[in-house]
């Protein structure tokens, strides 16, 4: 599934990386616990989370996460957006909660990250 399709399904605003919407996302991980992202991730994943601080971008960069969705209309700060641009990690913001966002993407055929 492309990031463009994901943005459409989630009716999301693209706040960083709007030129990179053609990348393919293989699976998704819904979490707020950063250690879990580091533990269970598979590369090329989408992270769906409720946290918007810069350390979330650093976690994504280190885990090899392709893109991040911030849920519940949370607006990331300028420092987070700047870091995401620098690291080339597109950021989407959706008004849906993590459960609804996960449900809609799963319904559209996106699988979850596998255990590793």
């Amino acid at each position: 599934m492309t990031l463009r399709e994901i943005a459409e399904i989630l009716e999301a605003d693209v706040v960083a990386g709007s030129d990179d919407l053609d990348v393919t996302i293989k699976n998704a991980c819904s979490a707020d616990m950063m250690s879990a992202v580091l533990y269970y991730h598979t590369p090329d994943s989408l992270l769906i989370t409720g946290l918007t601080q810069p350390h979330v971008i650093r976690t994504a960069e280190i885990a090899g996460i392709k893109s991040i969705v911030f849920v519940l209309d949370k607006k990331p700060g300028a420092d987070t957006i700047e870091l995401a641009r620098q690291k080339k990690i597109p950021i989407l913001c959706t008004r849906f909660c993590m459960y609804t966002a996960s449900g809609k993407l799963y319904e559209a055929g996106l699988p979850g990250c596998l255990f590793k």
């Binding site: 699976n27 998704a28 991980c29 819904s30 979490a31 269970y40 769906i48 993590m98 459960y99 996960s102 449900g103 993407l105 799963y106 319904e107 699988p111 979850g112 990250c113 255990f115």
Partner: peptide, 8 residues
């Protein structure tokens, strides 16, 4: 299952 899948 992970959260994303069980939620789905």
């Amino acid at each position: 299952l992970p959260a994303f899948e069980i939620a789905g």
